[in-house]
Each structure stands twice: as C-alpha cells, then as structure tokens.
Simulated assay, not measured.
Amino acid sequence: MIRHTNYRTAAPNTTTGSDWTQHGNCADVDLDVMFPGTKPRDIAAAQAVCAGCPVTDECLSEALRIEGNVMADRRHGVFGGLTGKQRRRVYEELERRRKAAV
C-alpha cells in the first residue's frame, strides 16, 4: 500500500534530496513498483529493479538510517533490494554487532 505523496517516481527529483538518488535504477520507475505490498510476484519485480543498481549500498544505508529502530511492520517498500522485514533483520544484526563491539 502506498502513502499519498506528490512524487510520481521512486527516486524523486528534489533540490533537497541526495544526488545519489538520481542514479538509481528506480529513478524513473513508477512508485507503485517499489512499494509492492505483500504479493511475492510484486516484491520480486521491485527487487529486480534493484538488481545491479549502482547505488544499492547508499539506498540501503539511507533506509536504515531513516527507519532506525522502527518495527518491521512499519517499514514499507523495497530499498537497497530489501523488503521492510529484511531491512529490520539487517538493522537488528548491525545493532547486535555494534553492542558486542563496545
């Protein structure tokens, strides 16, 4: 399910946004594709857009930074090739490693 925004593509062309967003495979992709809901076929289509993307690392890092400790059911869309649940697991693992290093 998509939240209503003024944006038409997954990587909006904004003057305040990071420049890397304009280089993503999703830069000209309709927003509906990158916010696929729960159907495996639709999720796979969004992840296919991310496959081979030159800014996957930046995208995933930005999503993890913005989402922080948000629960998996509050994480929407595919960013850096990962679903919200997958990003939550990555976040938890990074936190576990950070705490273990202290």
Rank of each mutant, 00 (worst) to 15 (best):
M1L: 14
M1G: 13
I2G: 08
I2Q: 15
R3L: 10
H4E: 14
N6G: 10
Y7Q: 12
Y7P: 00
Y7D: 13
R8S: 14
R8C: 05
T9N: 09
T9I: 03
A10W: 11
N13A: 06
T14P: 00
T15K: 11
S18T: 01
D19E: 10
D19N: 05
D19H: 04
D19G: 02
Q22V: 00
Q22N: 04
H23V: 00
G24D: 09
N25F: 06
A27R: 15
V29E: 06
D30Q: 11
D30A: 13
D30T: 09
D30H: 12
L31Y: 01
L31E: 07
D32W: 06
V33R: 05
V33Q: 04
M34S: 03
P36M: 05
G37P: 01
T38L: 12
T38R: 10
T38F: 09
K39R: 13
P40F: 00
P40S: 00
P40R: 03
R41H: 04
D42W: 01
D42E: 11
D42T: 05
D42F: 11
I43T: 13
A44W: 07
A44K: 15
A44P: 08
A44G: 04
A45W: 04
Q47M: 08
C50L: 09
C50Q: 03
A51E: 13
G52F: 07
G52N: 12
C53V: 07
P54A: 05
P54T: 08
P54R: 13
P54C: 04
V55C: 08
V55D: 03
T56C: 07
T56R: 08
T56M: 13
D57L: 14
E58S: 11
E58G: 08
E58H: 11
E58Q: 15
C59S: 05
S61L: 09
S61V: 07
S61Q: 10
S61N: 12
E62I: 03
E62Q: 08
A63D: 02
A63Q: 00
A63L: 03
A63M: 02
L64Q: 04
R65Q: 09
R65G: 02
E67M: 10
E67W: 07
E67A: 11
E67I: 09
G68Y: 11
G68M: 07
N69V: 03
N69K: 10
V70P: 00
A72P: 10
A72E: 14
A72C: 05
D73F: 15
D73P: 01
R75F: 09
H76I: 13
H76P: 03
G77R: 14
G77E: 13
V78Q: 14
F79V: 01
F79T: 00
F79D: 00
G80I: 13
G80Q: 04
G80N: 04
G81C: 13
L82G: 04
L82K: 15
T83D: 11
T83Y: 10
G84H: 12
R87W: 03
R87Y: 08
R87A: 04
R88I: 03
R88W: 13
R88A: 11
R88V: 01
R89K: 15
R89A: 13
V90Q: 09
V90M: 04
Y91P: 05
E92L: 11
E93I: 00
E93S: 08
L94W: 05
L94V: 00
E95K: 12
R96N: 07
R98Q: 08
A100P: 02
